[in-house]
Structure formats: structure tokens, C-alpha cells
Design a protein around this nucleic acid. Structure first.
Lengths: 126, 126, 126, 126
DNA sequence: GTGGTCTAGACCACC
DNA sequence: GTGGTCTAGACCACG
């Protein structure tokens, strides 16, 4: 479901957030579908419940999931993309960083576009 | 030379590292050219010298710059890209994160490839 | 655990780095084992925490240790040696320096090989 | 005569000291032979005369060379190795550091002894 | 509790 | 002048 690398510098709660979103993008979690409770997931991936809780809060804030008290947590029925200048700027910034880093690995534009295509294929395939 | 956003979650020393590398990739800093001394840059961007020093150490570790004791710091004459599995994995991971984030902004593959192309143009143009 | 000679010309953080690695090579620190926290070690050897931190960063960069956020620092489970031309060159250079220095102490090749053997024995014995 | 790498972390004056000693060990500089004056050498290797001067002072302190005022600088006629506990300890320490570093490159005792032998051959061959 | 970042200010070696 | 090291003390995110 979600793979955690405790040695990563990316905080665990963020790995969970990204992991859930990845599952949704891939389609292995569908709109309206129930996701594990905090306790369940914390047991599954052996992570402190507080950490899972923090991740779920963040996902709720981003309107990726909805918590219905007493019934559980569900993938938001419909996510309506909205213009979000900040997040777009972040994406552009990340892409710039990737390109600079790639330069120092000897990768050119085609290599990067190739990796982008590969990544999309990999996601759709699942 | 290097723009610092003190409110960014990206640490200042990392912003400096990326900023210097960006200048080199864009060509506004050329191989062999001297970059500002630690104290100079720290004054310019009003950041503690230790922070600049940390950035420069990291850049030297990455062989992006060379420091000549008593004379200053210079852009490495020639950077020979070498296979670095770890860094390639980091790039792939960043791209995956970008794609997931982009999905939630309603951007598709073509949008991303478009941004990649734009970013390359922007860099070469300078 | 780690002995510091404040009068040595070798910087303290480097003495810590080498000291930890020596413990691992000798086997007194085993893979997966926890090493003292930055604050603990800084208290133990009466050195500023920042200095210990710098040493730990370097060790992590070399993949000798892993730090798990909030839980502490651990000897890497498995260290996979990889080709590193730079470090090999450094070793060759160090050996050359040793040999030249040894000449001026009247030591010949056999003496050096003897010391090498002794040092290995000493390490395995512990 | 002496190769200088201004980018090295080893200070230039120390590179000169080691370089001269290496020449003597190799036999390309013989006992009693004249070595270049400070000015000559500083021109030859394009290094600040003060730096060469400092190197020569150090070599004199170590009784490796003798300066005869008005006549020049000469390789000491005869170097009598003396027991010098400190320097022996330094050599042992260097060897220990080499062995630890070698461990992390996957080199074992035989590899190290091999490099020692190679280095001796290389020196005698010149 | 953990490590990571940043500031301020000091000292030192090198050139 | 340069960068490198170290100390002291502070703040923050993470778990």
C-alpha cells in the first residue's frame, strides 16, 4: 500500500501523504473508496499512530480524503482541480531543480522527457 | 547572483548550492571563474558566513567548485559527469513527486513536458 | 568509544569520524547497532554538539551510519564497497607519504609491511 | 622537480616539503647536491616566494637540507636517522587510518601490502 | 527525546 | 585577504 523508508530524509508523515496520493493517481485507490484507519495503517507499516494521524490531517487539508466520523476515512469523491498559483510555482521550481541536477549527471532534455514518459507509463500500468 | 527566500522550507545553504549551480548551468558563471568569497556573499545576501561556508563545502564536495587556499573559490574547470546511481534515483523520485502533485493540479503529461521544455529554453536563453 | 586529542592537528570532527569507523572495523560497533546521540557523545567527550553533528553528517554522507529521524543514529546495516577512484588515489598518496616519512626514520619496506601486519592483528584481536 | 596542486587541501608549503623529500628518497636529489634557491623554485612552480621559503625553513628544521649563506641550499650530506618516538607514532597512526579507509573501499591486507610494494618499486625505478 | 539549521563571534593556518 | 574549525546558544520539525 505505502512503502516507508525510515532512513529517508523525507519525513515519514510526508511519505505517507505522497504514498496515498500515488495510489490514487495510479488508480489502485478509487474515489469514494475507504482507506485504512489510522490504527490499521500504523500497524501495517509499523509507524507511530501520531505520525499516520498527522499524514491524514494533511491529506484532509488538501481535500484528498474525507473523514466521516464513526464511519471511517474515504478518498474524496471528486477532486476538482483548482488554480493554485503557489503549488504551480512549486512544481516549476521542482522541475528547475531536477533539470539542474540532471545537468550535473550528464542528462539532457531528452533524457528527462524520457524519464517523465517512463514514470507516467509505470503509473498507468498499475 | 543568488536569490534567497528566507521563508522557504528549503534551507538557506541549499538555496545557495542550487543557486550557484543554476548560474553555472545558465552560463552566467563560467568554468574557472571566481565566485564571491564566503564573506562577500554573506554580506551580499545578508546571511551568516557559516551558512555560506556550509554551502560552499557542499559544492566542493560535489566537485562543482574548487577552493584554492588563500586565493578564493572558483568554478571547477571541467566537470566530468559520472555515474551516480543514488543521485539518479533521487531525480527519478523527484519526477514522480512532481507528476503526482501535477495530477492534483489537473496537469497532464503534455503539460509537464511543456514546462520542462519551457524551463530549458529559459535557461539557454540566459 | 572515541578518544579525542585536542592538541592534534587533525580536526576534532575528523577524529570522531575516524574513531567511529575504527570501532566498526574492529567490530566493537556492529551493523545495525545504535551509536550515541549527538548530545550524548558531545557530553562524553566534552566537545560542542555542533562538532559531533558535523562528524555524524560526514559519516552519513559516506553511508557508514544511518540516521532515523527522532530515533537516533545507527551503524549502516550493510556497507557495500564501491569503486571510488578519488578515495583510492588518496590512499595511495597517504601510503607514499608514509613511505617517505619512514625513510627519514630509517625504516625500510619490511619495517612498513611489519607495521601493517601488526596493525591488522591489533584490529582483529579486538 | 616538484608538482604542486593548488586545489589540494594539503597546504602548498607542505607539498613542497614532501616533494623535495620524495626526490631525495628516489635518488634524483643526492646528498650534498644543490637545490634551487627560493626565488628560482618559486618561479619554476609559480608559487609565492614566501611559501617556498616557509617550506625550506621546515626542511632545514628537519635537517633535510642545509643553507650555507651566500652559497645556496644543499641536501644534507648525511642524514642520520634517530629514534623519534613522535614521528613513529605518527606513521603508525597514518597506517591505521589507511587501513580503516581501505576497509571501506573493500581492500584487504594483501591489497595494502601490494600497494606498498608497488610504491617502493615506483620510487626505486626512478 | 532526536537531528538539522542558523546566528554570532572567535581563533587559526595559509598565501 | 582567504577558507576551515570550533564554541555557544537558539529555534524548529519530527516521532
Amino acid at each position: 500500500m505505502v512503502k516507508i523508508d525510515p532512513r529517508s530524509s523525507k519525513p515519514i508523515y510526508e511519505q505517507i501523504v505522497d504514498g496515498i496520493k500515488e495510489n490514487i493517481v495510479k488508480g489502485s485507490l478509487k474515489a469514494g473508496e475507504r482507506i485504512p484507519s489510522v490504527r490499521e495503517l500504523s500497524r501495517l507499516i509499523t509507524v507511530n499512530p501520531n505520525t499516520v494521524s498527522k499524514a491524514y490531517s494533511e491529506l484532509e487539508r488538501q481535500k484528498v480524503i474525507d473523514t466521516i466520523s464513526g464511519r471511517g476515512t474515504f478518498v474524496s469523491a471528486y477532486y476538482k482541480p483548482k488554480d493554485d498559483e503557489d503549488r504551480l510555482l512549486k512544481i516549476r521550481s521542482s522541475i528547475k531543480d531536477v533539470i539542474i541536477e540532471a545537468y550535473y549527471l550528464g542528462l539532457n532534455k531528452n533524457d528527462i522527457v524520457g524519464i517523465v514518459n517512463d514514470t507516467y507509463k509505470e503509473m498507468e500500468g498499475k
